[in-house]
Computed example of a mutant assay.
Amino acid sequence: MLHSMPTDIDRARTALTPERWTEAATEVLVDQGIDHVRVDVLAKQLNVTRGSFYWHFKDREDLLRAVLQAWRARATEQLTARLERAHDDPREQLRDLLSLPFRGRSAVRAARIELAIRAWARRDAMARAFVDEADAARIGYIAQVFSALGFGIAEARARAQLLYSYEVAASLLAPQGGEAQRQERASFIERLLLQPLSA
């Protein structure tokens, strides 16, 4: 029985996974904005035909949803699970949270993706829903840390909101100051957030 030789398109379909398309779309989103995340742009960048894209995705909307799902998995679900596994002590978990914006190149990359997705979410309902869900999940996790430190539910959530706001701002302002200044700020925020309020 004769078997046909695989074509370039067949090879492209098998070589390029959905994850590779999603990574390429994320890179374009970060560098050029959501309007440039188009099938033709990505196909050219990946040196394949548009047909290769449709092997993995129904349409552009399907790809954009995959970008948001990958971001949610990496930046919220996997990160939270990793932080929970790293320490049993909630105070150490809190210190890990405070250090997140300053963890080198990976933190800079994460901040750039976060900023691009938040810019996209200002004008797109699907992206907005993913961002709102991520914010709620992250604040919920941080509130659990504060609850484990002995704060009541309402106060734990308020402190979590403050810490999360600091995290988002610090990720954008990470280059400000040297390492010693960053450590000093993180230490101050930790003391501030752990200080019981007077009755």
Results as ranks from 00 to 15, higher is better:
Gly178Gln: 02
Trp55Lys: 02
Asp135Lys: 08
Glu84Leu: 12
Leu16Gln: 00
Ala160Ser: 13
Glu167Arg: 01
Glu23Asn: 13
Leu94Ser: 05
Asp59Arg: 12
Ile142Leu: 07
Leu100Pro: 12
Val67Thr: 02
Gln176Met: 15
Leu97Tyr: 00
Ala169Leu: 12
Val67His: 01
Leu100Tyr: 11
Glu27Gln: 15
Leu173Val: 03
His36Val: 15
Pro196Asp: 07
Arg13His: 05
Arg128Lys: 05
Leu149Gly: 09
Leu192Arg: 00
Glu77Gly: 10
Arg112His: 09
Ser187Met: 13
Glu23Ile: 14
Arg11Met: 03
Ser187Pro: 13
Glu19Arg: 02
Gln183Ala: 06
Ile117Gln: 11
Ala81Thr: 10
Ala43Glu: 12
Arg109Trp: 14
Ser165Arg: 06
Gln161Gly: 12
Val131Thr: 02
Glu133Pro: 03
Glu184Phe: 14
Lys58Trp: 11
Trp71Gln: 08
Trp71Pro: 04
Leu63His: 00
Trp120His: 13
Asp35Tyr: 14
Gln183Asn: 11
Arg109Gln: 06
Thr22His: 02
Pro175Gln: 01
His87Asn: 03
Asp132Met: 13
His3Asp: 09
Leu63Asn: 03
Tyr164Arg: 10
Leu163Glu: 07
Val28Arg: 05
Ala156Lys: 02
Gln78Leu: 04
Phe188Gln: 10
Pro18Asn: 08
Ser187Lys: 15
Asp8Glu: 10
Tyr141Trp: 15
Arg191Leu: 07
Leu100Asp: 07
Ile189Val: 15
Ile139Pro: 02
Ile142Asp: 08
Arg72Ser: 00
Trp55Gly: 00
Gln195Leu: 06
Leu97Gln: 02
Glu61Gln: 06
Ala110Asp: 10
